[in-house]
């Protein structure tokens, strides 16, 4: 199985291989495939952490299972496709990898996806903030 860093490098390659308009379309595809919350969280919004740096309400929850694998859960409204797209990219890149691998990914990889030109550098801050919160929760859950 590929590592979290491999998944990230593949995503970076995919996004950078295409033009700016197509990068937006790809981000939209990601936003459409963000998985629904499982019931245990859908019924307990209080367990989810709000990402304040995103203007749209996005909530996330991190689990670290018995074999030290990380599982990510997100919810963001349909009216916030960019935020959903960011969450979905993080989900694809990090979910199922070990806690060590997730903690080891480059904090700044969102800046290398080539989306800054398409959505503006300011908006990318939201994605870096999500990554920061994921890592913090991984550290807390493992402690």
């Amino acid at each position: 199985m590929s590592t979290a860093n491999n998944s990230i490098e593949e995503l970076i390659e995919d996004f950078n291989a295409i033009g700016i308009k197509d990068r937006l379309s790809l981000l939209l595809e990601f936003s459409e495939k963000l998985p629904e919350l499982p019931e245990r969280y859908a019924d307990h919004p209080d367990l989810l952490e709000r990402v304040e740096e995103c203007q749209s309400p996005v909530f996330l929850f991190v689990e670290v299972d018995a074999s030290d694998k990380v599982h990510l859960f997100f919810t963001a409204p349909a009216e916030a496709p960019t935020t959903r797209g960011f969450a979905s990219i993080l989900q694809e890149a990090l979910d199922g990898h070990s806690a060590d691998e997730v903690l080891g990914v480059d904090d700044d990889f969102p800046s290398r996806i080539g989306l800054a030109e398409a959505v503006s550098p300011l908006r990318m801050r939201g994605m870096r903030a999500m990554l920061g919160r994921i890592k913090r929760q991984v550290r807390e859950k493992r402690a």
Partner: peptide
């Protein structure tokens, strides 16, 4: 819109998109 992708999810017929950040700044 605030969200740069919202137009692509569906918009009023004939409308074009201008993004506050990538187009106006």
């Amino acid at each position: 819109d605030e969200d740069v992708l919202l137009y692509e999810t569906g918009h009023i017929a004939t409308s074009v998109k201008i993004d506050w950040h990538t187009d106006l700044n």
